[in-house]
Design a binder for these strands. Structure first.
Lengths: 201, 201
DNA sequence: TCCATTTATGACCCGTCAGTCATTAAAGGG
DNA sequence: CCCTTTAATGACTGACGGGTCATAAATGGA
């Protein structure tokens, strides 16, 4: 008898608007009023779908990382170091810059919700494990230096590359600069992973 | 005849207190009241020495980076890649973690004072140039792969290592974990810089 | 000691913004 | 068309914190 709306769709629309605002101005600087305007509704309406600004952020983070995880999971396992490096490049698209600026707004000292840290930290732990799984066969195949521990190398690669993105995001570089720096770094990294392998092999 | 105080010394004391608070809670979460209490004075007194919270932060950043720059400048120019890597390690002490957390609180989207960005960005530009100056002779000496551009490699190293610190800072790792990850990353990096050079040379 | 001058204080002011709630609008069954 | 139930609205509230300023304290020379 009464008015019925699709809750999930509304939540999705709100999260879309919130993502736009957060990417643009950061989490702290975004007012609930901004999100409401972007979503084309009144501020009070937001609170029908999310208990608070913080809950909204957590839902956003969850959705964002679930999405990336799914996309990375679809990249086929690399058989060569070259293929691995190509996969890395795919997981570092230039539009990651803006999203990254959001995360350190959220993970900075001024905002420590352990649930946010868990979502983001959990993703990177998963990513390091994912890379370690790919390294092991590459080491056996002689594509990667055999003196490396798959686990340690994967952690280093994960931290370094995420860090690269953060560093460049902080200074607001343009996307073409980002791509140039990313590729230079990946080249250096590739040489470090390969080591004497290509010569010895 | 009247009461006289040493302005510079007072400013220094206030900056010390502010640094402690900012490192501990971040810039945004720190109240001027907190800084005042830590410095052992009333809130109003702070405003006799700094026009605003933001001016205080800028003075803090300037002092901090001038200090690091001076310390890095004192490290003698490396004659071998090993020496260079040792120098890198010195410029990444574990206590950099806390300071780094502060910078992304400050450089996050919620706070964009171009002067802050200039101080921090200027430091990293200087650092990349500094490393490039050290790379050039190392490349000529065959310590580093000759197919690398000193400039590009220095930029990659700077971004990657700063990024590593940020990444680890974000997730609040302990200092011993930090040192282990840092050393694993430096080893990978060293292999990438050396490349086939040690074999070819 | 007294006074002029600088320094210190903290209650107060005021703008901001997350979150609330009384009121209004929309939906759809009877 | 009416009425009940759910959804939407936006003016309002209350907490918070940066910055101010009237007042008080300290200093040191006369």
């Amino acid at each position: 008898m009464p008015k019925i709306v699709d809750r999930e769709e509304m939540q999705g629309r709100i999260l879309d608007a919130a993502m736009t605002c957060f990417l643009d101005q950061g989490y702290h600087a975004t007012k609930m009023q901004d999100v409401a305007r972007k979503a084309g509704m009144a501020k009070g309406t937001l609170y029908l779908y999310f208990q608070s600004k913080e809950e909204m952020l957590l839902a956003l983070l969850q959705r964002y990382f679930d999405d990336i995880r799914a996309r990375i999971g679809m990249i086929p396992a690399p058989r060569t170091l070259d293929q691995f490096m190509m996969g890395l490049r795919l997981t570092m698209p230039a539009d990651r810059l803006a999203a990254t600026r959001l995360f350190f707004d959220v993970l900075g000292p001024g905002f420590q919700d352990p649930r946010a840290a868990e979502i983001i930290g959990g993703f990177f732990a998963w990513l390091a494990d994912h890379y370690a799984d790919q390294f092991a066969p590459l080491i056996r195949a002689g594509e990667i230096r055999s003196d490396l521990s798959a686990q340690a190398a994967a952690q280093a690669v994960t931290a370094m590359l995420d860090g690269l993105v953060i560093h460049l995001a902080i200074f607001g570089v343009e996307e073409d600069v980002f791509e140039a720096r990313r590729d230079a770094t990946l080249a250096l990294l590739e040489a470090g992973l390969r080591g004497g392998a290509s010569i010895a092999g």
